[in-house]
Amino acid sequence: MSPLLSVIVPVRNEAHVLPALLDDLAALRLAGAELIVVDGGSDDASCALASARADLVLESPAGRARQMNAGAAVARGDYLWFVHADTRISAGAVQRLLDALQARPLWGRFDVRLSGRGLALRLIGTMISLRSRLTGVASGDQGIFVAREAFRALNGYADIDLMEDLELSRRLKQLVRPVCLRPPLETSSRRWEERGVWRTVVLMWRLRLAYYCGASPSRLAREYHRGSRP
């Protein structure tokens, strides 16, 4: 019998954050969910950490879209839940997802909050969630979940270097707007704190606008990584 849910976690050198996520997902796995970790060429302990606590650990060419597609290709669950390695998931969020899936939605995502302290980070998390509710477009940090058959019918994530989450959201939204769930998932604020909070806001909005105007995701990925240097 196929599980209701397959959780797919793309990783690359995530040993410093992966154990906490695996702890968060342990009860869900015991309840019957399938956990698939897809490694994109780690040279740390990511694979070793995952091998004892996941149903399947795969190797894939690096790239979040490629890794998530590789996991989805072998997933058995009726629903696919794509979760970033630096995410923290409360027991309440897990239960809310399981409850929501009983209604058989096509797809959805969670609200999000940033892990760090301070009003600016709290405001940014709130604005990300609000923007998503207004536009019907989700980011990968929001834990996108989607019916497996719908995902495969759309040929999964586009094989692009950045903005794969927005691109998939736009295609799914043409079918139906997402289910929006609370309580929020928590995502690491490390990149915001290392690069500077408002500098990162400006960078992300500039890249997003360029993408909507037709810029190449490969070029945007290079700019993103240049901009990520503190």
Rank of each mutant, 00 (worst) to 15 (best):
A72Y: 08
R113N: 11
R122N: 12
L80W: 13
G118Q: 03
I8E: 07
G32F: 08
L58Y: 11
G63H: 00
S139C: 04
A26K: 04
L114C: 10
T87V: 15
V9Y: 03
A27R: 11
S90N: 02
S129N: 05
R131F: 07
G143H: 03
D99Q: 12
R53Y: 14
G143M: 01
A62S: 05
D55L: 04
G41P: 10
T126Q: 06
E59H: 10
R104Q: 09
R131K: 07
S139D: 10
A72N: 12
I124Q: 01
L106F: 12
M68G: 00
A45L: 08
H16Y: 05
S132F: 02
L30W: 03
S129A: 14
L123W: 09
L35A: 12
G136Y: 03
P105E: 05
L106Y: 04
G118C: 03
L56R: 15
D141I: 02
P19D: 06
G118P: 02
R148E: 01
D86N: 09
P3H: 04
D86Q: 10
A100H: 08
L35P: 08
E149P: 09
A75N: 11
V112C: 05
F145P: 10
R88W: 05
A45M: 01
A72H: 13
R76S: 15
F82L: 15
L58C: 08
V17C: 13
M68A: 02
A62Y: 13
L22K: 02
L98Y: 00
R117Y: 01
A45K: 07
V57P: 08
A91E: 02
A70T: 05
G71M: 03
A48C: 05
G32D: 00
A52D: 14
C47L: 14
V57M: 00
P105V: 11
L18C: 05
A91P: 15
A62F: 12
R122P: 10
R12F: 05
F82K: 00
S139H: 11
S90G: 15
F145K: 01
A62P: 04
